[in-house]
Amino acid sequence: MNNTKVTDASLVRDYLEGNENALGTLISRHQQRIYSFIYSKVYDKDISEDIFQDTFIKVIRTLKRGKYNEEGKFLPWVMRIAHNLVIDHFRRNKRMPKFDNSGDFNIFSVLSDGNHNAETQIIKEQIESDVQELIKELPEDQLEVLTMRIYKDMSFKEISDRTGVSINTALGRMRYALINLRKIIEKRNLILTN
């Protein structure tokens, strides 16, 4: 009961002066809110646990290194750290999709070599040649940017240098190229998936 009277700022000060119990009070005071916030984003108990732990490891390290300077705003500061770690988590997972082994285990999902069989290979080639025909209907400037980006794998910086327009213009042309391509596909009722 006594904990509620002590402010976060003074608990942080106590902790910085070596009172380890102050950290326990801070954690127990805010754990519910921080953990719920993390859980509401990731919907996974184990991941929430990891992010919660990483959040406070960062808090502890920052405090002990004397880098904390947001006196009186402890909770928003911790929430921001948690928020950033949640974003990191999603970024990492996007880059390296994990193998989800929950549910029934399907050995073929691991053994598949990713190659197309004869049928899908033919369909793929057909789609590619259709798309190559379709893009010829695009305006010259859009066709140029799209070809450089998709077929020559050039960056927008390189495209900008090559074509003599700004990066933003190149991006805009690419955007309109894709929009127009979709319109052409819709107009012709084409299905370009295998």
Binding site: E20, S28, Q31, Y35, S36, Y39, K45, R61, K64, R65
Partner: peptide
Amino acid sequence: VQPQPAKETIEFLLNYSKALEV
């Protein structure tokens, strides 16, 4: 039931804090 971190996690953090010296 509000989601709560595990006791072990809290214990770990408190022990980590005690062990960490800058």
